[in-house]
Amino acid sequence: MLKINDLHASVEEKEILKGINLEVNAGEVHAIMGPNGSGKSTLAAVIAGKEEFEVTKGNVVLDGEDLEDDAPEDRAHKGVFLSFQYPVEIPGVSVTNFMKTAINESRKAKGLEDMPANQMLKLIREKAELLEIDRKFLSRSLNEGFSGGEKKRNEIFQMAMLEPKLAILDETDSGLDIDALRIVANGVNKLKSKDNAVIVITHYQRLLEYIVPDFVHVLHNGKIVKSGGKELALELEAKGYDWIKQEATV
């Protein structure tokens, strides 16, 4: 489904991604771990098409199509979803209104009519229930005054609404207490199918107990320096990242 080939990306002349290769197939869950500043969020943003980052070499291919010329919204319409590490606030725009706009814009791109209001409401109700979100929450301004945990839960709510093909969750676990973590992980698991894929970016093994990865990759200094099965995550948890860094510099 997703194929990343020798991807190099930089911002303000500074190279951050230095040759990433990654293949994700439908039905798989991949975890990307790595120390702070290794380039995890940058990788996510480049896949989503953030133009601030310049791709200097290599490419990102989704379902056999090079995404190079696709604007972020085109990629979204093709099923790429990013749960942001730091979701932004949009004052005065309710969660419901935002979701309605997002869904209808995606439908418009596919040549479909706006979703009828009753169907929209039904969908919102269903997904809010899945993530145990209070309905009152949905009329609040997007992310404005939300707690860290609420923001993350809201990201996954949006994912549930949009049913993406490829979901990238960037440190969705940070800021979540254990109950919220379980609810969010449960939501992600319910949405998983043989047709979609998930990339989980995290520091900790904790989330991976709930969303069990098929593969774990370690990103260090803009490169994937180690890949393995889910046991790699446990190893990292026990030993920290230092041994990886040492191995990488050898």
Binding site: A48, A71, H77, L82, E89, I103, E105
Partner: peptide, 14 residues
């Protein structure tokens, strides 16, 4: 902000 715009773009909103 560019971040607000990118956030919307990422959700399929031009």
């Amino acid at each position: 902000g560019e971040d607000q715009i990118f956030y919307c773009n990422q959700r399929g909103i031009d």
